[in-house]
């Protein structure tokens, strides 16, 4: 579904990605793991077209998307949940949920999304600034599910959340997999990643340095500990 080839990216003059290569097949959940500052979130932003200075190639179902504006990438079916959740505090919860246009028929109806995240169903009319961190994360995921995006980019969805909320997010990600959606997950919490992912790409200093299938994670426990700095 997605192929990233020799991807370089810069923040201003700072060269952050140095030739990233990886692939994701339809229906897979792939994580990008590594230490903070390795460039994992930058990979998601580059796919989304949020960084202006990039070289290399990003193909989505065979179509080159590197030079496209981010709105076109979104309309091709890529849904983005940023690390800070991207909740609009001047909008209500309902306005946030319905903000992105539908790009194709979604796998989940609004009713199903609200059943998945009952906390937001009860707060639709509230200002989004009043939501807790966990509720904001649920809203951020629900918002991209509503659009019918086929490829979801989730940046640190469990960061700073209580264990009970992490479990709820984990159940939601499992439902996405069952529905056949493709997910790229940037995740610091490896236990969470291991519970949902098919493969793990390890990123260090702007490169992909390893790929570990989830089924083989126990064999590579020592390597994983080194990569994650545990």
């Amino acid at each position: 579904m997605l192929a990233v080839r020799d991807l370089h990216a810069w923040y201003g003059e700072q060269h952050v990605l140095h030739g990233v290569n990886f692939e994701v097949s339809t229906g897979e959940i792939v994580t990008l793991i590594g230490r903070n500052g390795a460039g994992r979130s930058t990979v998601l932003k580059s796919i989304m077209g949020l960084l202006h200075r990039r070289t290399g190639s990003i193909t989505l179902e065979g179509r080159e998307v590197l030079g496209l504006p981010s709105r076109t990438v979104a309309r091709l079916g890529v849904g983005y949940v940023p690390e800070d959740r991207g909740i609009y505090t001047t909008l209500t919860v309902e306005e946030n949920l319905f903000l992105p246009p539908e790009v194709r028929k979604p796998e989940f109806s609004v009713r199903q999304i609200l059943e998945m995240f009952p906390n937001i169903r009860e707060r639709l009319a509230s200002g989004a600034s009043k939501l807790s961190g966990g509720e904001q994360q649920m809203l951020a995921i629900g918002r991209v599910l509503r659009t019918g995006a086929r490829l979801l980019l989730l940046d640190e969805p469990t960061e700073g959340l209580a264990p009970v909320i992490v479990e709820q997010i984990g159940r939601a990600v499992t439902l996405l997999k069952q529905a056949g959606l493709t997910v790229i997950l940037v995740e610091q919490n490896f236990n969470f990643a291991a519970a949902v992912a098919d493969r793990h790409y390890v990123i260090e200093q702007g490169h992909v340095v390893d790929m570990i299938p989830n089924a083989e994670r126990d064999q590579h426990a020592a390597k994983l500990q080194k990569y994650l700095g545990i």
Partner: peptide, 24 residues
């Protein structure tokens, strides 16, 4: 209105609003 919510969203976070498929 929905158009108004797009305007308010684009005012608050223009880059992200564009990444949601809205022509900012």
């Amino acid at each position: 209105t929905r158009l108004g919510s797009h305007l308010r969203a684009a005012t608050e976070k223009p880059g992200l609003t564009e990444a949601f498929g809205i022509n900012v």
